[in-house]
């Protein structure tokens, strides 16, 4: 074990962890919107809309994230038409390709989490709102959505942690996130074990923080 290397690589890895957190927060931000949108489509009574939302979530949950990120980064770049369109300004950047892939992926899982939360809301809550003369729209936005979000906190917390681990794949499309920098240090020192232990420790620490924040939120917004 090369302790000196472990200590000297720590600052570089910590600053790379910021890239990881940036990727994570951007992906979660867009993913939450996508997830909410598709959860609403999933509970729609229109069969076509419903099927479309189902296929989306099935495809993104049924294939590895690595395949998705490769299709978006290397695959789409192959299409001549895309390269001449305005979309290329976004797809040209590895950073945005990674975020698109992550957001679509986490969006699929989030839509499932929210859908099941919508479906488990007790009908009594909605009826109570109706009997108080509150409009359907307000019931949806002010009652159903917040209750669903609260219901899905534990599952969503898990999803955040899974997504944070998923961001390590950004290193496969040239981004210098925590895993990317760890690999870079290894490629000059040829000592994989030491560097991966330090990087793993940082990931673990971030998992720990996320886990506890979610726990705190669950307590704060519990119904009791």
């Amino acid at each position: 074990m090369d302790l000196e290397l472990m200590i000297s690589s720590l600052p570089k890895l910590l600053s790379a962890a910021i890239v990881t957190l940036k990727l994570l927060s951007a992906s979660l931000f867009f993913g939450l919107f996508i997830g909410l949108l598709f959860a609403i489509l999933r509970i729609s009574k229109n069969v076509l809309i419903n099927k479309f939302a189902y296929v989306y979530s099935y495809v993104f949950r049924g294939t590895p994230l690595l395949v998705q990120i490769f299709i978006i980064y290397f695959g789409l770049a192959q299409i001549e038409y895309l390269r001449t369109s305005f979309l290329w300004t976004i797809l040209k950047e590895p950073y945005w390709c990674a975020i698109i892939a992550f957001a679509l992926n986490t969006g699929a899982y989030t839509s499932e989490i929210l859908r099941s939360a919508f479906q488990t809301i007790k009908p009594g809550i909605i009826e109570a709102g109706k009997s108080l003369g509150i409009s359907n729209k307000i019931i949806f936005y002010k009652i159903q959505i917040p209750v669903a979000i609260r219901q899905s906190l534990p599952a969503y917390g898990n999803e955040i942690i899974l997504m944070m681990k998923g961001t390590s794949l950004a290193s496969t499309v040239t981004l210098m996130d925590l895993t990317g920098v760890a690999k870079y240090i290894i490629s000059t020192t040829f000592k994989p074990i030491e560097v991966f232990i330090v990087a793993g420790g940082i990931y673990l620490f971030m998992t720990f923080i996320i886990h506890n924040v979610i726990k705190y939120l669950e307590k704060k917004y519990s119904f009791q």
Partner: peptide, 16 residues
Amino acid sequence: TYKTQDEVNLDLAAGR
């Protein structure tokens, strides 16, 4: 930096 030279070539041709 890229994992393989193939990827470097692809991104050069794509204009990235």
